[in-house]
């Protein structure tokens, strides 16, 4: 464990807490893509199959359980409790375009050809692009509530912090995880546009609005 990874994980944790806070305080899931949230639940469930047979640490175990539980809870909130506040007509990204290629890539690139390992690869590729329905929705509506942008910023920071973590591990532990690194760089790159607007507008006290 190094500080980059620790702060990355904490940022991930913070993003989920911000999202729950957004839903609770506005009593609405307006502006949140159900599809992205469903993809994240899929990512965690397919990645953490090792929960049942591989013990890493109490930290690792607790985080995995938290990510699976919170992502399912968010789906429940969106699907049932605050259902009327979600507008499916603007959440129109075709998730087949993400699920299909992720499955193909997982079959081509994995560390071992076993069910949990192929699912692990699948979850890595899927996570890299799972934010796209959310960013697509943002692009369509052209604006976002400030708290929603804080959620996205924390999520993006988590991904960004994993990159120095890998560089650090490469030098200190002589370790490299080519699948996670490649997908992680793609994933972080997807946030660049968002970060630009976040830093130049939201952090200057303005509303998140995309130019028309």
């Amino acid at each position: 464990m190094n500080l980059f990874r620790l702060f990355g994980d904490l940022s991930h944790l913070a993003s989920i807490i911000i999202l729950l806070q957004k839903i609770r305080s506005t009593r609405s899931c307006r502006g949140i893509s159900f599809k992205t949230q469903a993809l994240y639940a899929t990512v965690f469930i397919t990645r953490y199959l090792d929960l049942f047979y591989d013990w890493v640490s109490l930290y690792n175990f607790t985080m995995k359980v938290f990510f699976i539980a919170s992502s399912c809870y968010i789906l429940y909130l969106m699907r049932y409790k605050y259902r009327p506040t979600h507008d499916p007509s603007i959440d129109t990204f075709r998730v087949e375009y993400l699920l299909g290629p992720s499955a193909v890539l997982a079959l081509l690139f994995h560390y071992r050809f076993t069910v949990p390992e192929v699912f692990w690869s699948f979850s890595i590729f899927l996570e890299a692009v799972a934010i796209l329905p959310q960013l697509f929705m943002l692009q369509r509506t052209g604006e976002a509530e400030t708290i929603t942008t804080h959620y996205l910023a924390a999520l993006g920071a988590y991904r960004a912090l994993y990159i120095p973590n890998w560089i650090y591990r490469y030098f200190t532990e002589d370790m490299v995880d080519p699948i996670a690194v490649t997908a992680g760089i793609v994933q972080t790159a997807l946030y660049l546009d968002f970060f630009y607007v976040y830093f130049t507008k939201v952090l200057q006290g303005q509303k998140f609005e995309l130019p028309a």
Binding site: D50, W120, D174, V176
Partner: peptide
Amino acid sequence: PVEMKRHDEL
């Protein structure tokens, strides 16, 4: 460098 043998990251 060695490839990651087990998945200890989240």
